[in-house]
């Protein structure tokens, strides 16, 4: 697996490093990467001293493990991922990150280390905005969030800014309209800048409507939850370990564990576990090496019909239909 360690920032000095770790080079705003790793558009643009935007529209030809290790902590990232969106139904080439989270919009602090794997064959489309924290703070304070709350959220000693959500359908429309323009054309940088501002406006609207809530999470708690989630993925063929055991592993009370888990990932541990199991079931089914009965056994479903039922409610079609459509 190709491992790519990189960092982001509003200042674009990291672009060269990213290009190098992808074994590519910079050509204007483009990062050109060898076709055997990925093919498509990798494009960065600094819009102002406070905002930088990155567009990634690629197909992966190798498994790539991304490790984000930011050095600067003066910015936040807003990530729009259209690939995993509910509105895009791509069955076989969906990009799956380790610990597949049920989100297509993420707002994260630059202090957060993030690892994720993108599988070979994935089609990935993402818009990332990097914003100086003081600008983000300025926008947020306009929405009427109280200063004391903001002080706590932006307190670098304890908290880390984090939010996962579903992008609004308006954001989705804005991005879709933008996708009609050709990267590198004369008006492209203007359109990309326009896109960044329009998306920020929409985010702010949703914060106003409280559909996005900016909240604080203790960094140590976050690390615990992410760790716990990784453990869950390792055990995904088995049976659900139970909240008591997971909470003990994370050194928390069961109540606190459940609450934090939901806050950070937006799902209960149980739902996360089941959804990942079903994703795995789909992949294994796709490999053609297993019958549905064998799968139910391998993945510890109580019965074949239980698997079928859950599969259908998650993917909208039964495993039988899915296997037939391959």
């Amino acid at each position: 697996m190709k491992e790519v360690i990189y960092r982001f920032g509003v200042e674009t000095d990291w672009v060269e490093e990213l290009a190098a770790s992808l074994e590519g080079f910079i050509d204007g705003n483009f990062i050109i990467v060898a076709d055997d790793i990925l093919k498509g558009t990798y494009y960065t643009l600094q819009i102002s001293e406070n905002i930088t935007v990155m567009l990634v529209d690629v197909i992966y030809h190798q498994d790539v493990l991304y490790k984000v290790r930011n050095i600067k902590n003066d910015f936040a990232g807003i990530y729009f991922n259209l690939t995993e969106g509910d509105l895009v139904h791509v069955m076989n080439d969906i990009s799956r990150s380790v610990g597949r989270w049920n989100y297509n919009l993420a707002i994260t602090d630059s202090q957060l280390d993030i690892d994720f794997v993108i599988k070979s064959g994935s089609k990935s489309y993402g818009i990332s905005l990097f914003l100086k924290k003081h600008i983000l703070r300025e926008y947020l304070s306009k929405t009427g969030i109280l200063d004391e709350v903001l002080n706590r959220v932006f307190d670098e000693r304890q908290n880390t800014l984090l939010h996962y959500a579903h992008m609004s359908s308006n954001s989705w429309h804005i991005i879709n309209e933008f996708r009609k323009s050709a990267p590198g054309s004369i008006s492209f940088n203007l359109l990309l800048s326009g896109l960044a501002y329009n998306l920020m406006a929409d985010c702010l609207d949703n914060i106003m409507k409280r559909e996005i809530t900016i909240s604080k999470v203790l960094r140590t708690d976050l690390a615990m939850i992410l760790n716990s989630q990784t453990n869950l993925i390792k055990k995904q063929e088995g049976i659900f370990p139970g909240i008591t055991s997971l909470a003990a592993e994370a050194n928390m009370s069961a109540t606190k564990y459940k609450k934090l888990y939901k806050k950070i990932t937006g799902q209960t541990p149980n739902a996360f576990f089941l959804n990942n199991k079903l994703e795995l079931a789909r992949d294994l089914l796709g490999s053609g090496h297993y019958t549905i009965r064998e799968l139910a056994e391998k993945l510890n479903f109580t019965s074949t019909s239980h698997l079928s039922e859950q599969f259908k409610s998650y993917f909208g079609m039964s495993p039988k239909e899915y296997a037939a459509s391959l």
């Binding site: 926008y139 306009k142 929405t143 009427g144 323009s181 054309s185 004369i186 008006s187 203007l190 359109l191 800048s193 326009g194 896109l195 960044a196 501002y197 329009n198 998306l199 920020m200 406006a201 929409d202 702010l204 609207d205 106003m208």
Partner: peptide, 22 residues
């Protein structure tokens, strides 16, 4: 009066300018 108005005017202006350039 929306806090997002300024962002959205900026976005719109850039878009309209881009279309004009084209």
């Amino acid at each position: 009066n929306d806090p997002s108005f300024e962002l959205s005017l900026r976005g719109t202006s850039l878009q309209v300018f881009a279309y004009l350039v084209e």
